[in-house]
Amino acid sequence: MMPTDRNGYEIGETVEGFTLKSTSGEMISLSDYNSEKGVILIFDCNTCPFSQGYNERIKALHRKYADQGFPVLAINPNDPQVSPGDSFDKMVAYATDKNFPHTYVQDTSQEVTRAFGATNTPHVFVLNNENGSFKVAYIGAIDNNSRDASAATEHYVEDAVEALLNGNEPPVTSAKAIGCSIKWKRS
């Protein structure tokens, strides 16, 4: 049965390194981002309507912040046996079709997803690079209106990244949202 309570990384904790396969075919490691100021890490997928609704906003985050040192790294946590629309081939097709400017990798073993304690998609972890160790600075939703980006009044991820770029703590460090549950492997 899938885990219920979140018991992954908390705010301020250092994230362990990982290496996952990207839709480009390359193996991507967290350490590849050592020269960046941080990473906007997003557990995301092809199939969840909330993920789909946030596609453009996720692309916009990358376009806005990659050059400033906070690129988006999207991780698909879903088990393709349980969610066939999230197979590696479907991910490649989806990333191509949607013109993803950001990296999209697959967590086939779900170990990274478990370590983070991700629970739903899209689920964001903003990581701040502090002398080579990536620390969790924000956990949660992208903004407070999944239906309509223009109606959102809180932009949690942007506010967190802006604060970090200015050397400050994020004003809000976590915000919950309704989302699709992660499709865990059947044990």
Binding site: T4, D5, R6, T119, N120, G140, A141, N144, N145, S146, R147, D148, T153, E154, A175, K176, A177, I178, G179, C180, S181, I182
Partner: peptide, 20 residues
């Protein structure tokens, strides 16, 4: 109520927001 963070904890503080 799409401003989810404003009410999820009132249902249960342990709820991540995933459904069901």
């Amino acid at each position: 109520e799409v401003d989810y963070n404003s009410w999820i904890d009132k249902v249960d503080p342990s709820w991540s927001g995933a459904i069901p």
